[in-house]
């Protein structure tokens, strides 16, 4: 999947004009929204006046998807630059107090041979990688390391399946978990095609990468981006023409993981070999 960046916001958040197909679609949308609203009002009682408003066009200021958000964050992983040092994994663990044996980010090493491939991520590459043994090294046709993490999808299946609204996508693109509302049912863990989510063994709640929301909100970069020594990890605002992530799109072909899942990740990969799943 290599669509131009400019298409992304339009394709996932249609701007609806009157007339033609779109008018029909809007009617259907409003109709469905109206039905849902009515149902909600009937079944779920008071306090939904806000929803009734939100369903129509008079959305509360700043809460609707219609007004373009100020920031539109994106993450870029440049596989060509990853050296597999594991600094990102360690920094993430430390920054977010991620318990052992679970990972908000991890790094995979691929060793491709004529017979097949060796893929591994020992302890998420917390300690980096040991050297490949001589036998496999001789057969290897190529080898590389790939960082993985939550893809902060435009159509996040995890958000869709959460039964209580304990995970959500913010206007600026962060997919977050509400630890005060999460049941720990793990349906989101099942729904994520990327293995990015886990049940935190200490808190017993769903957990995953937040793009270091607390850091970004304080004007910092995510911890993994901060410590990456070779610019394999970039983070920035697509609305800012000067940001590194915006620059990448000008001259590089990018990919996303598992495009067939149609989750529309906003974590983009540059230089991703086809072996990566």
């Amino acid at each position: 999947m290599n669509k131009p960046l400019e298409n992304r916001p339009q394709s996932s958040r249609p701007v609806i004009d009157a007339g033609g197909d779109d008018a029909r679609r809007e009617f259907l949308r409003n109709f469905l929204a109206g039905t849902a609203t009515a149902t909600v009002l009937m079944v779920f009682g008071p306090g939904v006046a806000a929803l009734a408003q939100g369903g129509s066009d008079s959305a509360p200021a700043g809460a609707s998807g219609k007004a373009a958000p100020k920031h539109q964050f994106a993450y870029v992983i440049n596989v060509n630059n990853c050296i597999g040092c594991g600094n990102c994994v360690r920094a993430c663990k430390r920054e977010n107090q991620v318990p052992s044996a679970v990972f908000r980010t991890w790094v995979e090493r691929y060793v491709v041979t004529g017979e097949g491939m060796y893929v591994e991520s020992p302890n998420g590459a917390l300690e980096g990688f040991s050297q490949v043994n001589a036998g496999i090294r001789e057969k290897a046709t190529k080898s590389f390391t790939v960082p993985k993490m939550c893809n902060h999808c435009e159509n996040p299946p995890c958000v869709q399946v959460c039964p209580v609204g304990a995970t959500f996508k913010t206007k600026e693109g962060f997919v977050l978990v509400d630890p005060e509302h999460c049941l720990g049912c793990a349906y989101c863990v099942q729904a994520c095609p990327y293995g990015a989510r886990f049940i935190n063994p200490v808190t017993h709640k769903s957990d995953k990468c937040t793009w270091c929301y607390h850091r970004v909100k304080n004007g910092k970069l995510p911890a993994c981006v901060t410590v990456c020594p070779n610019k394999a990890r970039l983070f920035g605002d697509l609305n800012d023409p000067e940001s590194e992530v915006t620059q990448i799109f000008k001259d590089e072909a990018w990919m996303v993981l598992k495009p067939g899942m149609h989750t529309d990740p906003t974590c983009f990969y540059v230089g991703m070999p086809r072996e990566v799943v």
């Binding site: 044996a101 679970v102 991890w106 097949g116 893929v119 591994e120 991520s121 990015a196």
Partner: peptide, 11 residues
């Protein structure tokens, strides 16, 4: 997936 080694995602 042509895997020679059983690889599961760390999570």
């Amino acid at each position: 997936g042509d895997a020679l080694l059983n690889y599961v995602f760390p999570n």
